[in-house]
Design a protein around this nucleic acid. Structure first.
Length: 877
RNA sequence: GCGGCUGUAGCUCAGAGGGAGAGCACCACCUUGACACGGUGGGGGCCACAGGUUCGAUUCCUGUCAGCCGCACCA
């Protein structure tokens, strides 16, 4: 075994071993409880980023833990077609590489190209997931546009349509002129921008005056159909019903009254443009106004804008303002900060646009979801995300699901050229279901990607068929995802799950944060500050990346990526590797490990076994609560501090000694603790733990399918823990003295221990060999009354005082200073504890065990203090 | 406007109603038979601020300040 662990030479081999052995496959153990997670399907737009790696690491850690803990665990992988994103990527590549647009290519040819792209990237993505070590069941891999999943999509569409929960309507939606498609509300990002609020004068037709409207969008004025004022606004009461001339045109529009108008804002007069503003649209409906459009789908002004035809919205605005100003209609332009919707995909300003689209009626679907969440049928980890989730569901509006794209699930609706009727059905129809005409054509549009993603937990299991997987693994247990797609995805799975399966699609939602660059900013392509997980894995190994991502954070919070963190994870893995090397090097070939024998274990053995028990218990509890940070920390500390720094060092005495029974027992303890530790760490760092475990002389075919360690009450040993603590305290005290006096660690010294009682004497006598080795002693004298040379350094430990007579090196003055500092420290501890105990309220009200602990501290500190003080007076003598 | 998160060592972050922690960085020493991706020892913090609850608050509550993030149709 090399002294440095080389992940590159191990990981692929181990992964292939697992995969070929079928360990990832769920369903082998019908007798065990099932446990399932469906992977949030990465988009086939490109390579995975660190966010995916984080998400995947947490899921795989859960799955591996559950598998070890005796579950028939399913981790179901897959990818998402990501309609708009993928189409945009392919279009861009096509344009850059071949100078061809999708329209030039045609729908069918274009889709072939997208499928090529999909195949390539889905392959890359699954390879990346493998490289991360994710133990997913590849035999169940799915893609949102698979035949089966498409059938689920179709069924849901048809059923919702038949229930009246999907409808087609001419309504105002968010339109991205650049993507040339409708967007749902959540695909729009509202960004605060500084704009101008223009005050424009609209003259009365009768010449008796004018009203001044306030608008940020003068370029839409050609589609104005009214000016609204508040019905109770005294200023404009007389105006209601009168007619205005629309500047720059020869159109006449009425003044209407509507409560939507805010009297305080602007001038109190609002121009009403139903086709280009969602609020105006509502006003238009209420007042039965016409809804002309002056901006087309390409985001340019149309013929209605007269001279301004063909201009973009920005050009049009500038030109219109200029014209208004020149003709004296512009009264004012105040600065206004307001939120403007931008396309979350391409950042283009979204145009509220009136068009025929398909919608899902949300209220009847959101209601059951709200009720179920309120009844705690869905638990969020951490809990706070529940509130965010509920708030969104409570305020959700109808969901626009049609997209003017080619890549996606084509809407299963056919229009009749004769009767205009709509036919929606599971099977492609050959005739109109209303008039039976054969002159029908299918809707050109596709469905929002999230429409299919929303079915993921059950469509992947074979729904709508009643498959064995549906019976066994649905509902799934946990859903792990970033808080950024709570609304996009989680909410939709919840209400479709409830509507179509009658069940919550998962019991728990484990929410994690975002991974950020080291300066705290989001990683993004445009900033170029993204880190490629492949690079991290190449340099440090997948285990190091996983450990980094899974630990050092608290649930639900963001994390910054630092190479130093990965390095420290790598170092930890290397530490485990070398500790294992040590254990293996000390196992002669073919050695038989005896069972642990309580009669032949010494203090250090009992101590480490006790600590192992504690670690198993605490780590398991943390994992059960999905608290990976804490579980990882506990394991790290146990592995490094307790096992490596202390136990391995202790074990060397027996291993290098000649007591064969002790030697055998020590080996057995080393192997047992290492074995347990590897199991505990496996969910975090699966590769290195499996690699080592394969070399250990213990039964079992693979760590990945071994058993999770259990607390063994037999090794509960609080007394040994107290003994070991005194031993380590003493060793540290001596090291400290040596270090302060610059005594080389290798230089042998004499040591005197003055103990307080027989028990302590026994304790020191039992651990004599450890003290001698760890403190490099040439002699050791233990007794209740030992003669101590004056020229000695001393240290007080629990129930004992140790002296190192370093005559030539001891400077009494310096030593006194050191002791005085110690007195001060101890005195402040004593004061603090005494103050507490002196407070009758404390003694009365605090829990008995707390009071007891404080009393014990008082005794200990006082004894130590007295000893140090005595030592000082002796030195001063 | 409503909601949430964060504020702890130089940096990045854990933590918990009862003695301030880790990693990295820093200082000193150590090539000790697993490991220099290591070992030993050490320095460094009014736990943002102000109130309140409590026997006891860095931890719980309220407010303030600072940073961040969601949601919201203010033309």
């Amino acid at each position: 075994m090399p002294t440095v662990y080389d992940p590159a030479s191990v990981e692929q081999r181990i992964y292939a071993f697992w995969e070929q052995s079928g360990y990832f496959k769920a369903g082998h153990h019908p007798e065990r409880p099932g446990f399932s997670i469906v992977m949030p399907p990465p988009n086939v737009t490109g390579f995975l980023h660190l966010g995916h790696a984080w998400d995947n690491t947490l899921q795989d850690a859960i799955i591996r833990y559950k598998r070890l803990a005796g579950h028939d665990a399913l981790f179901l992988p897959g990818t998402d077609h990501a309609g708009i994103a993928t189409q945009a990527r392919v279009e861009k590549a096509l344009m850059e590489e071949e100078g061809v647009s999708r329209h030039e290519l045609g729908r069918e040819k274009f889709l072939e190209r997208v499928w090529d792209w999909k195949r390539k990237y889905a392959h890359e993505i699954t390879n990346q997931i493998r490289a991360l070590g994710s133990s997913c069941d590849w035999s169940r891999e799915r893609f949102t546009m698979d035949e089966g999943l498409s059938r689920a999509v179709r069924k849901v569409f048809v059923d919702l349509y038949n229930k009246g929960l999907i409808y087609r309507g001419n309504r105002i939606i968010n339109w991205c002129p650049r993507c040339a498609t409708a967007l749902s509300d959540i695909e729009v990002e509202h960004v605060d921008v500084e704009a101008k609020l223009y005050h424009v004068s609209y003259p009365l037709v009768d010449g008796s005056g004018s009203v001044t409207v306030a608008t940020t969008r003068p370029e839409t004025m050609f589609a104005d159909v009214a000016v609204a004022v508040h019905p109770e606004d005294e200023r404009y009461k007389d105006m209601v019903g009168k007619r205005l001339r629309l500047p720059l045109t020869d159109k006449e529009i009425p003044v209407i009254a509507d409560e939507y108008v805010d009297q305080e804002f602007g001038t109190g007069c609002v121009k009403i443009t139903p086709a280009h503003d969602p609020n105006d649209f509502e006003v238009g409906l209420r007042h039965h106004l016409e809804m002309p459009q002056c901006i087309d789908a390409d985001g340019r002004l149309n013929a209605m804008a007269g001279l301004f035809q063909g201009m973009s919205r920005e050009e049009g605005r500038a030109a219109v303002v200029k014209a208004l100003e020149e003709q004296g209609f512009l009264k004012d332009a105040e600065t206004l900060n307001h939120a403007v919707g931008h396309c979350s995909r391409c950042d283009t300003v979204v145009e509220p646009f009136l068009s025929d689209q398909w919608f899902v009626r949300m209220e009847p679907l959101a209601k059951p979801a709200l009720d179920a969440v309120s009844r705690k049928e869905l638990r969020f980890v951490p809990e706070r995300f529940e509130k965010v989730f509920l708030h969104w569901l409570e305020n959700v509006r109808d969901w626009c699901i049609s997209r003017q794209l080619w890549w996606g699930h084509r809407i299963p609706a056919w229009y009749c050229d004769e009767c205009q009727g709509i036919t929606v059905s599971m099977q492609d129809p050959t005739e109109c279901q209303h008039c039976h005409s054969a002159q029908i054509h299918q809707d050109e549009d596709v469905l929002d990607t999230w429409f299919s993603s929303g079915l993921w937990p059950f469509s992947t299991m074979g729904w709508p068929d009643e498959t064995p997987d549906m019976a066994r693994f649905y509902p799934t247990n946990a859903l792990v995802t970033g808080y950024d797609i709570l609304f996009f995805w989680v909410a939709r799975m919840v209400f479709t799950g409830l509507e179509f399966t009658g069940k919550m699609p998962f019991h728990e939602v484990v929410v994690h944060g975002l991974i950020r660059a080291s300066d705290g900013r989001k990683m993004s392509k445009s900033l170029g500050n993204g880190v490629d997980p492949r690079e991290v894995i190449e340099k440090y190994g997948a285990d190091a990346l996983r450990f980094t991502l899974a630990t050092g954070t608290s649930p639900g919070n963001d994390q910054r990526f630092y190479w130093e963190k990965v390095e420290s994870s790598r170092n930890f893995i290397n530490k485990i590797w070398n500790a294992s090397r040590f254990v293996l090097m000390n196992l002669p070939d073919g050695v038989d490990l005896p069972p642990l024998d309580a009669d032949n274990l010494d203090v250090s053995d009992r101590w480490i076994l006790h600590r192992l028990n504690e670690t198993i218990e605490v780590a398991t509890n943390h994992l059960e609560r999905y608290d990976f940070g804490e579980a990882g920390r506990v394991l790290y500390d146990f592995a490094w501090d307790d096992f490596c720094d202390w136990y391995i060092e202790f074990s060397k005495l027996a291993l290098y000694g000649d007591d064969e029974v002790r030697k055998a027992q020590t080996r057995a303890v080393l192997v047992h603790v290492l074995d347990s530790l590897l199991r505990l760490l496996h969910p975090f760092i699966p590769f290195v733990t499996e690699e080592i475990w394969q070399s250990l002389p213990i039964p079992g075919e693979a760590l990945i399918v071994a058993e999770w360690p259990k607390v063994n009450p037999q090794w509960h040993a609080p007394h040994a823990v107290r003994q070991a603590n005194v031993l380590m305290e003493t060793i540290r005290a001596v090291r400290n003295i040596r270090s302060e006096l610059n005594v080389a660690p290798s230089k042998p010294v004499a040591m005197f221990v003055r103990v307080a009682d027989e028990d302590t004497a026994a304790l020191f006598n039992q651990t004599k060999h450890y003290l001698t080795r760890f403190c490099h002693l040439q002699s050791l004298t233990i007794g209740q009354a030992v003669d101590v040379p004056k020229q000695a350094m001393s240290a007080v430990v629990t129930n004992a005082e140790v002296f190192l007579p370093l005559a030539d090196l001891v400077d009494i003055r310096v030593e006194l200073e050191r002791l005085e500092k110690e007195v001060a420290r101890l005195q402040s501890e004593v004061d603090r504890v005494e103050k507490k105990l002196g407070n009758p309220q404390f003694v009365q009200k605090a829990p008995a065990d707390v009071v007891e602990a404080e009393r014990a501290k008082a005794v200990d500190y006082k004894a130590k203090l007295a000893a140090v003080q005595e030592r000082i007076s002796a030195l001063r003598g």
